[in-house]
């Protein structure tokens, strides 16, 4: 706690962190329980592959128990009205991410098979500050950075400080750039 606030530059960062910690207390909202229940139920039907009454009843019971106890692990502070739009934009974001992954994979593949690879690579750790505030958007951004080859997130904090290990000049140059804008647009941050 003191470590995180001591790092921060601006005073509102510390206030924001305290706010965030108070918000994530142990209250459970009914909407997050329902959404968690439907996700778990879909996975149950997919995994069991049987549609008779016995298996569906078992699925409903076990999904309800798990959704009741662990709903705050998946969603915190869920606002139900915004959910469909966020998910729609997230699904639109995925093909772009896969395209980027594909491009960057070919770049790393070229590096791997290059005979003089040691002259081409230049690993370094880049640090930057992101504008993103919400936990979910920071998580998505950090995972997207790691999935795009050539860059690995070394550390990401709630306050938006990122440290990224980049393998050469071209992979590191693109950060934060367009990906941050797209993630920002998804979660309306």
């Amino acid at each position: 706690m003191t470590d995180l606030t001591g790092d921060s530059q601006k005073p509102d960062d510390a206030a924001y962190l305290v706010d965030e910690l108070e918000n994530t207390s142990h209250k459970k909202s009914i909407s997050s329980i329902i959404v968690t229940f439907f996700i778990l139920m879909a996975i149950w039907v997919l995994l069991s592959g049987k549609f008779d009454t016995f298996h569906i009843t078992l699925g409903i019971i076990s999904s309800a128990i798990i959704a009741f106890f662990f709903s705050d692990l998946l969603f915190r502070n869920l606002i139900l009205g915004r959910l469909p739009r966020v998910w729609f934009r997230f699904i639109v974001y995925i093909p772009w991410l896969i395209y980027q992954i594909f491009l960057a994979n070919i770049h790393v593949l070229y590096l791997v098979f290059h005979p003089r690879m040691l002259e081409l690579i230049d690993p370094k750790i880049i640090e930057f500050r992101s504008k993103l505030k919400k936990e979910m958007s920071i998580l998505t951004f950090a995972n997207s950075i790691t999935l795009t080859p050539g860059t690995i997130t070394v550390s990401a904090t709630v306050l938006g400080k990122f440290a990224v290990h980049a393998i050469d000049e071209t992979s590191g140059r693109a950060l934060p750039g367009e990906m941050e804008k797209r993630v920002e647009r998804i979660f309306e941050d």
Binding site: N105, V108, L109, V112, M117, I121, T148, P149, I152
Partner: peptide, 30 residues
């Protein structure tokens, strides 16, 4: 299979632990 092969050869060829993670973690995913 080409991506998998690139990942395996990258794990062997890269100089240190941090750069080995690049082919290991992500060429495998692709």
């Amino acid at each position: 299979l080409v991506f998998f092969a690139g990942g395996a050869i990258g794990i062997i060829r890269f100089p240190d632990f941090y750069s080995r993670l690049h082919p290991a973690g992500k060429l495998d995913t692709a």
